[in-house]
Amino acid sequence: MKQKLSIVKIGGNVIENQAELERFLLNFSKLEGLKILVHGGGKLATKLASQLGIESQMSNGRRITDAKSLEVITMVYGGLANKNIVAKLQALGTNALGLSGADGNSIKAHKRPVKDIDFGFVGDIDGIASDFLNTVLNAGITPVFCAISHDGKGQLLNTNADTIASEIAIGMSPIFETTLYYCFEKKGVLKNVEDEDSVIQHINTATYSDLIQEKIIADGMLPKMENCFHALHNHVGKVCIGDISMLQPESNTFTTITL
């Protein structure tokens, strides 16, 4: 029987709120078994870029990463956000190791080809170094990944944190029984965006199609759900979406997604 592994992705709104971040990290530190944390930090990067006089460019909610933006992202994701999280986890008794995709050659990617839009230094993932991560996990260390990959030729690449979490879960699924958690500010996927308590507790392939047709799942939730089903179709056992209480053993108010 495979050992269980939890991969948890934390959203930027939680990272920005110190009280919420500390609550989340307390829950994460108490999560039983092996675990990996993935985080972004887009709002912090936008704020610092503005302070430095660097304009942040977006297209349909996705960041266009030029050379100067990549420098800010590296500072914020790989430095400020990552090391703050690692230090707080150490204080909670979780021996964490902050990583980018370049560290241990753990996440290799290629620069996204230019089609309609040139996204700049944005990476699409090619593969995960599962043997390296397995060694780290078996040494009793919890990896904490920022949303940066690399191309193996010396170039760092900004990479969507939801995608990184999904690809790590897929890459580790031959070794472990993997569960992927997307933790953000909502209690789950909502049937009515105006009603915070209208959580859809279970979604599968059939109901997902219905929810898209009814436009209940739309806009920013669509790419997140695409990552969920991509993971499930590639042998990830289960995907859950919810707020920071989702990681508590007694919690049952979140969305579980299965095939």
Rank of each mutant, 00 (worst) to 15 (best):
M1Y: 12
S6L: 02
K9N: 07
K9C: 05
G12P: 05
N13Q: 14
I15P: 03
I15E: 03
E22Y: 02
L26C: 09
L26S: 12
N27I: 04
E32M: 01
G33H: 03
K35D: 07
K35I: 09
I36V: 15
L37K: 06
G41R: 12
T46E: 15
K47E: 15
K47H: 13
L48S: 02
Q51P: 09
S56M: 14
Q57K: 15
M58V: 03
S59A: 04
G61F: 08
G61P: 14
R63E: 12
I64H: 00
S69M: 14
L70V: 05
L70T: 04
I73Q: 03
T74L: 07
V76Y: 11
Y77V: 11
G78I: 11
G78A: 14
I85Q: 04
V86Q: 09
V86T: 08
L89P: 09
L89I: 03
A91F: 10
A91E: 13
A91C: 06
L92V: 04
N95K: 14
G98C: 08
S100T: 10
G101V: 02
S106V: 00
S106A: 10
H110D: 07
K111L: 05
I117Q: 09
F119M: 12
F119K: 11
G123W: 00
G123Y: 01
I125E: 04
S130H: 13
S130M: 07
F132R: 07
F132K: 12
T135F: 09
I141D: 02
T142A: 07
H150D: 12
K153H: 10
K153T: 09
L157K: 04
L157H: 04
D162F: 02
I164L: 08
A169R: 01
F176V: 12
T178V: 15
T178P: 09
F184T: 05
F184A: 06
F184G: 01
K191H: 14
N192Q: 15
E196Q: 14
E196W: 10
D197S: 05
S198K: 10
Q201V: 14
I203A: 11
T207S: 15
Y208D: 12
Y208P: 07
Q213V: 10
E214S: 15
K215L: 13
K215W: 07
I216F: 13
I216N: 12
D219S: 15
G220S: 14
G220F: 09
L222A: 14
P223V: 08
N227I: 03
F229Q: 00
F229N: 02
H233G: 07
H235E: 09
V239Q: 08
I241F: 13
I241N: 03
G242H: 09
G242Q: 09
I244R: 05
I244G: 00
S245R: 08
I257H: 05
T258M: 12
